[in-house]
């Protein structure tokens, strides 16, 4: 049983890496991976929100939508839960953890449109995971995404110093290519689980 959970976690972090295999959360990926600091700040906010929304969305889908026979509207329900959670987290942080708020508060509103969050909720329905499996899967996906964005940001910080680069390639272009090479190396993990 415990083995099963470990497998789901490792698969979510490495072999099914959200950024490099499923290509999720690319908008913040491109715009934030210019410095290591913002990348890790965003990462911390993402891990929190993804796990929290999985905890909330699973019971809503399986205990409310399925018995009522209204699975059709789950897109609307999930996105409202996500937007609500983000708002709530923002308010709680503002009131009780002003230091944390200052550190990654600005990234919170952006998370609503980070497709990783919605994708985790959709995938956990498609894969028919149990409650505990879903939460672990969500946490794993978030960790995988952070690993990806932090690696790319760290490489990109060094790339800024490179002088000889075509002008048009600077910025998003080179981030894409860096991510592509990293995605290639992450292919090496496939078959591990």
């Amino acid at each position: 049983m415990a083995m099963n959970f470990i497998l789901i976690f490792v698969a979510a972090v490495l072999t099914e890496n959200a950024a490099f295999t499923y290509l999720l959360g690319m908008c913040p990926f491109i715009s934030l991976s210019k410095s290591l600091r913002t990348a890790s700040g965003m990462g911390a906010a993402v891990i929190f929100v993804i796990t929290l929304t999985a905890i909330i969305n699973w019971p809503i889908y399986h205990l409310i939508l399925v018995p009522l026979g209204s699975e059709l509207i789950y897109y609307i329900v999930f996105i409202i839960v996500i937007a609500g959670t983000v708002q709530l987290v923002e308010m709680i942080m503002e009131k009780f953890f002003p230091v944390l708020q200052a550190a990654f508060g600005i990234f919170l509103p952006l998370i609503t449109v980070n497709c990783t969050v919605l994708a985790v909720s959709l995938f956990m329905v498609i894969k028919e995971y149990s409650y505990l499996q879903s939460v672990i899967y969500a946490f794993g996906i978030a960790v995988g995404w952070i690993i990806a964005i932090v690696i790319v940001a760290a490489i990109n910080e060094k790339l800024e110093l490179v002088g000889a680069m075509p002008k048009g390639m600077k910025g998003p272009g080179i981030i894409m290519v860096t991510a592509g090479i990293l995605a290639l190396s992450f292919l090496g993990f496939s078959g591990m689980v």
């Binding site: 490099f20 295999t21 499923y22 290509l23 075509p166 002008k167 048009g168 390639m169 600077k170 998003p172 272009g173 080179i174 981030i175 894409m176 290519v177 991510a179 592509g180 090479i181 995605a183 290639l184 292919l187």
Partner: peptide, 23 residues
Amino acid sequence: MAPGAFFVLGTLIWITKTISGQT
């Protein structure tokens, strides 16, 4: 697969940026 997507889009961004001069 995924890496190809990055390479092709990265290259396309490079080309369009060079053409439009928005560097």
